[in-house]
Simulated assay, not measured.
Amino acid sequence: MRHTPHYLLHDHDEIRRLVRENPWVTIVSHTADRGIVASHYAFLLDEAASTGDEIVLVGHVGRPDEQAHELGRHEVLLIVQGAHGYISPSWYAEGDIIPTWNHVTAHLYGTPEILTDEQNLKALAELTDHFEQHVVNPRGLHLDPEYSRRVALGTVGVRVRVTRFDARAKLSQNKAPEVVERIIDELEGDGPYNHPGLAREMRRHHDARDS
């Protein structure tokens, strides 16, 4: 990403929160056979392992993506995209005409560890349970263990221990407080570019900065 020091995100807790809230991840590999390969899968934060400065993600890919990405042979990039949206200059002070795009984004780097079949099955069960906990009649892999085990064989589980990251929270830090409030109001409103999630992210960031 473009080097913008005033938007840099260094806080490991904030990176962990971003992963928790945005589990749909883009995996990018620079491979020997295919060049650049990209795929999209759900990843969860390994809460037990992600303490202190450690950030560990667990997920899976469908076969044969593990071969396409050459998983386990080299470093991969995991892109985690948080709230983002268009910011109209009509929300700025008079005479300010340049629009922008606010966003929270993290690039996470690490070499994947391939899980065993049993570890992968456990990770898939936890992934399903993580999302099913919010529905009225949740379903899980435990309801049919043998069928779940067969289906799991079509996937490859991976654990990625993040060795470095490059993250940005570009949330109108260069604007005056009254302009920031107007942007948040517009994002919370009913206009064509409303985005309550981005408004919450902006308010959270600016409240923390001002406290």
Rank of each mutant, 00 (worst) to 15 (best):
Leu187Ala: 06
His60Trp: 01
Val135Ser: 12
Gly72Thr: 05
Ser90Ala: 07
Ala42Leu: 12
Val180His: 10
Lys122Cys: 04
Gly197Leu: 08
Glu75Asp: 14
Val104Ala: 04
Asp129Val: 02
His10Gln: 15
Leu18Cys: 11
Glu132Cys: 12
Pro23Cys: 10
Leu115Ser: 02
Gly59Gln: 01
Glu14Tyr: 07
Asp207Tyr: 01
Leu57Ser: 01
Ala169Tyr: 10
Lys122Ala: 15
Asp210Pro: 01
Val160Asp: 01
Asp33Pro: 05
Glu70Thr: 09
Pro112Asn: 03
His40Lys: 10
Leu71Arg: 11
Thr155Glu: 02
Glu21Lys: 05
Phe165Val: 12
Gly154Asn: 15
Asp53Tyr: 08
Glu118Asn: 05
Ile79Cys: 10
Ile27Phe: 03
Arg159Glu: 03
Glu70Val: 02
His10Lys: 12
Asp53Glu: 15
Gly62Asp: 08
His84Val: 00
Pro138Ile: 01
His6Gln: 13
Gln133Pro: 13
Pro177Ile: 06
Met1Asn: 11
Glu132Ala: 05
Thr31Lys: 03
His130Asp: 14
Glu126Pro: 00
Gly191Thr: 07
Val156Ile: 07
Ser211Gln: 15
Asp210Ile: 06
Val28Ile: 14
Arg203Gln: 13
Arg200Trp: 10
Ile79Lys: 04
Ala38Gly: 06
Pro177Asn: 05
Arg17Met: 10
Asp129His: 05
Thr116Ala: 03
Arg161Lys: 13
Glu146Lys: 14
Pro64Cys: 03
Asp190Ala: 02
Ile98Thr: 14
Gly191Arg: 07
Arg16Gly: 01
Arg164Asn: 08
Gly154Tyr: 05
Asp210Leu: 12
Pro138Gly: 09
Leu143Asn: 14
Val19Gln: 01
Pro196Phe: 00
Glu47Gly: 08
Leu141Gln: 14
Tyr7Ala: 12
